[in-house]
Amino acid sequence: MLKTNEDALTETQLETEQVFDGVLLNVHRDKVRLPDGKTGIREYITHPGAVAIIAILPDGRLIFERQYRYPLHRAFLEIPAGKIDAGEAIEACARRELREETGYEAASWEHVGVMHPCIGYSNERIEVFIARDLTHVGHAWDEGEFLELLSLSLDEVRAAVSAGEITDGKTMTALFMALDRLV
């Protein structure tokens, strides 16, 4: 494992201000002391965290969602995912999101790990799970949530990533993190 001397790289917060308070995101601007003793400004987004679920159907296919993402003005293929509510346990969030978005419940859950998708400007973390032994019970989409569900074999997923049809970072990272468990 790569060893680093974290203390030599630490930046210490001297001042902080919240410059935007949104429904999902909050933007902060901090004055920090840099490792060389000088000062700098750091702007960053705070995020409550999220989960992402690799849901495996009995035939081995994976559940994907096709969902419009406004910032890029187009639909994307991605695995089910969603924001962690305040005080919510990560597996409870994964169970809730899988049920709401796909209509499936899983009898078997495995936590794969955590990823940090935007380390240069956000504290967001995404907890990755694998869900197996699925039973369809019907979706419960949030108000204003629109998506299409589809299932892809692992070979189809690989081809879609290679062809640039799957470009969502959390989806590609989660699949890479879980690859040994999916083959």
Rank of each mutant, 00 (worst) to 15 (best):
T4L: 07
T4R: 03
E6L: 07
E6P: 01
D7A: 11
L9Y: 04
L9H: 06
T10D: 00
E11I: 03
L14I: 06
E15S: 01
E17H: 01
E17S: 05
V19A: 05
V19Y: 05
D21G: 12
G22M: 04
L24W: 13
N26P: 03
H28I: 11
H28P: 09
H28E: 03
R29L: 12
D30T: 06
K31G: 03
V32Y: 05
R33N: 00
L34Q: 13
P35V: 02
D36V: 00
G37P: 10
G37W: 06
K38I: 01
G40Y: 09
I41W: 12
R42F: 12
R42A: 03
E43F: 06
E43V: 15
E43L: 14
Y44W: 15
T46I: 03
T46N: 05
A52C: 06
A55P: 09
A55T: 10
G60E: 05
R61M: 04
F64R: 04
E65S: 08
R66T: 11
P71Q: 10
R74I: 00
R74D: 07
A75H: 04
A75K: 03
F76I: 15
A81N: 07
G82I: 05
G82F: 02
I84Y: 10
I84Q: 07
A86S: 12
E88R: 12
A89F: 10
A89Q: 13
A89Y: 11
I90T: 14
A94C: 12
R96I: 06
R99A: 14
E101P: 00
T102P: 00
G103H: 04
E105T: 14
A106I: 04
S108I: 08
S108Y: 09
W109H: 06
H111N: 14
G113Q: 05
V114E: 14
V114Y: 06
M115W: 01
M115V: 13
P117Y: 04
C118T: 15
G120L: 10
N123R: 04
E124Y: 02
R125Y: 15
R125W: 07
I126D: 07
V128S: 14
I130F: 13
I130W: 11
A131L: 08
L134A: 08
W141P: 15
E145L: 12
F146N: 14
L147W: 00
E148F: 11
E148Q: 10
E148L: 05
E148A: 10
S151Q: 13
S153M: 07
D155S: 14
V157I: 09
R158I: 06
R158H: 11
A159D: 11
S162K: 03
G164I: 07
G164V: 07
T167C: 06
M172T: 14
T173V: 12
A174P: 13
L175H: 05
L175A: 07
A178E: 12
D180G: 14
D180E: 15
D180P: 11
R181Y: 12
L182D: 08
